[in-house]
Amino acid sequence: MMTSLVVPGQPLGVATAYVPGTGVHIFNNQIIASLVGKVVTIPNASNTATTSSAPPTISVVKPVLTPEEESSSSTLLPDVSSTVLCRITRINARQATAAIFVVNDRIVGDEFQGVIRVQDVRLTEIDKVKIFTSFRPGDIVRARVISLGDQSNYYLSTASNELGVIMASSESGDSMYPINWREMKSVRTGAVEERKVAKPF
């Protein structure tokens, strides 16, 4: 069975529930995606000697594209109002820079650079927004293209409930999960860090 697109670092389930296949690894007893792609789970045959079923194998695979789709993906460009997934690469007081790798649920052939300016992080209390408490390098963010910007950057916005950080690691390197719209919690230590969190679909 195939599910929606996943990104590197995304938890897929507890290690005891699956046999790891290709495109995944185990970290802190969790099956973690190692690449951008689709999740595939394959049921394993029952063990007749014990009458019990082995856990299904879980893998992440890159979508198989037709030559036409592959050609269009390599030239796929973000446009105004496109929804993108991007990885934060660096931050400063005024903006976060990100590498765009998915446009409208399609993996792009080449990564594009985007910028989330401090005024485009959220809709409310814009004067109180701080980039350093909204994003960290390595965060995976769902954003919307609001301007084609200049020749090197697309301008992105997370100023909507469904936009923002969807995956993040703590300062100690642990996976985190959202506890509200502005905080995420480490699965291992319970430490809480601030983020501009995307509301899950």
Score class of each variant (00 low, 15 high):
L76I: 00
L76R: 01
V24M: 10
E70N: 01
V14Q: 12
T66I: 03
I88N: 11
K62P: 09
L65N: 00
I42F: 08
T66K: 01
N29F: 09
T83S: 03
N47Y: 10
Y18L: 09
I32H: 04
P20Y: 09
I31Q: 14
P63Y: 01
V64W: 00
I32W: 15
A17V: 13
V24A: 06
S81L: 06
L65E: 00
E68M: 01
T89Q: 08
D79A: 05
I42W: 10
A17I: 15
G23N: 05
T41C: 06
T75G: 10
S34D: 13
P43H: 07
E70R: 00
A49S: 07
I31G: 08
K62W: 08
N47Q: 08
Y18T: 13
T57N: 12
P56V: 14
S53W: 15
N28H: 10
S52D: 06
A33Y: 15
E69Y: 01
E70C: 01
P67D: 00
K38A: 01
S59K: 03
S46W: 15
V24K: 15
Y18W: 11
S52C: 02
S71T: 02
T83I: 12
K62C: 03
L85H: 10
A17F: 08
P67E: 00
V60M: 05
L85S: 12
A54G: 08
E69P: 01
Q30R: 11
S46C: 10
A15M: 05
V14F: 07
N29A: 09
P43S: 11
I42M: 03
V40N: 05
I42P: 13
P56H: 03
K62H: 07
V84D: 02
A17P: 12
S73P: 08
H25T: 08
S71A: 05
V14E: 13
I26W: 09
H25I: 08
I42S: 04
T48F: 07
S59D: 12
C86M: 09
Y18K: 03
P63M: 06
A45F: 13
F27P: 04
S52K: 15
A93R: 15
T57I: 12
I88M: 05
P78D: 09
R90W: 12
K38Q: 02
P20G: 05
A49L: 03
N29D: 04
F27Y: 14
T22I: 14
I58T: 11
I42T: 07
L77H: 04
A45R: 14
P20F: 06
I58K: 03
D79H: 10
V40Y: 11
G21T: 09
V84I: 15
N92S: 06
H25K: 05
L76H: 00
I88S: 04
L85A: 06
N28I: 06
P55V: 07
A33R: 08
N92W: 15
T41N: 04
